[in-house]
């Protein structure tokens, strides 16, 4: 039984303040998106309760003909992209972290170079054009199929798997591929879950490349449709095609709260991922196998 600990209470309190600092501005955005457009000006920057209540902003967003399609596109890009990321990153990280082979050092230095050099947009665009990947999901998914930064992080995790386990497997006659799939991957679940989260969020939030490589609006991910409104100050895209949008109705809207609603819509699907990911961050994940 744990005893009351002063240190623990202080820690809990510090973290509580921290989450408060994060939460209040975010709740403010939520409150803004749910407020009655006519009363929005009453809401202060720290207010967390909506003034009045209206779902008009969400109705508008949801009646945009591209929104549902774009959510589907985003989910597709995120799932396929993340799976590919995980496979390529893990298999490459295993070879680089746990084996010796001829030329390894050069490969590592070249990888660092790949990480720090950012070629200009036009070079990448020409490459995609030559590969005939323009206007295809492949361009968006492939251009960062392995993030070198994450690759090195996964290598670090792989390196910390005790050598004794691998040696034991080797003695049993397991080859590299078998060790990788049967031992390395199961032992690295938290690391892979972390990476899945990182890659997943990255794909979900990807915006810039999607605007460049996906010109067909039917292929746009959610972020492109939403940011069109928030960033490029273009109200027409979001409101275009919304049934019964008259100038009068348009005029009663509050763009600030409409924007807030788009932010909420973009973030909510990410929250649905939380339980899935947090599962891997609980006690006992590492039980069995780690004991040296």
């Amino acid at each position: 039984m744990r005893q009351f600990s002063m240190t623990k209470t202080i820690i809990q309190f510090i973290l509580f303040l921290f989450t408060l600092a994060v939460l209040i501005p975010l709740l403010n955005i939520l409150a803004l998106s749910l407020s009655d457009p006519a009363r929005v000006s009453e809401l202060s920057g720290l207010g967390v309760l909506p003034k009045g209540f209206s779902l008009i902003n969400y109705e508008i967003i949801m009646s945009n003909p591209f929104i549902l399609k774009s959510i589907f596109n985003s989910v597709f890009i995120t799932i396929v992209g993340t799976l590919l990321n995980l496979f390529l990153t893990a298999i490459t990280a295993y070879v680089l972290a746990r084996t010796e082979f001829v030329g390894k050092r050069i490969v590592l230095v070249v990888l660092i170079a790949i990480m720090v050099f950012e070629p200009s947009m036009i070079t990448e665009y020409l490459l995609m054009k030559d590969l005939h990947l323009l206007n295809s999901y492949a361009a968006v998914i492939l251009y960062k199929a392995i993030n070198v930064y994450y690759l090195f992080i996964l290598m670090r995790f792989f390196q910390e798997v005790p050598t004794s386990i691998l040696e034991a497997a080797k003695i049993d006659g397991a080859g590299h591929f078998r060790i990788f799939t049967r031992i390395m991957l199961p032992l690295s679940k938290p690391a892979l879950a972390t990476l899945a989260l990182f890659y997943g969020v990255y794909h979900w939030n990807e915006y810039f490349r999607a605007t460049i490589y996906l010109s067909d609006p039917n292929k746009w991910p959610l972020q492109v449709v939403l940011r069109q409104f928030v960033v490029t100050q273009d109200n027409t895209t979001l409101l275009k095609g919304v049934e019964g949008m008259t100038p009068e109705l348009l005029a009663t809207l509050d763009f600030g709260s409409l924007q807030s609603a788009t932010i909420v819509v973009a973030v909510i699907p990410m929250l649905l991922l939380y339980p899935l990911i947090l599962k891997y961050f609980t006690k006992g994940t590492m039980d069995g196998g780690v004991k040296e």
Partner: peptide, 8 residues
């Protein structure tokens, strides 16, 4: 095993 990554 290294090939797909390197090719990429």
């Amino acid at each position: 095993m290294l090939l797909p990554g390197m090719l990429y």
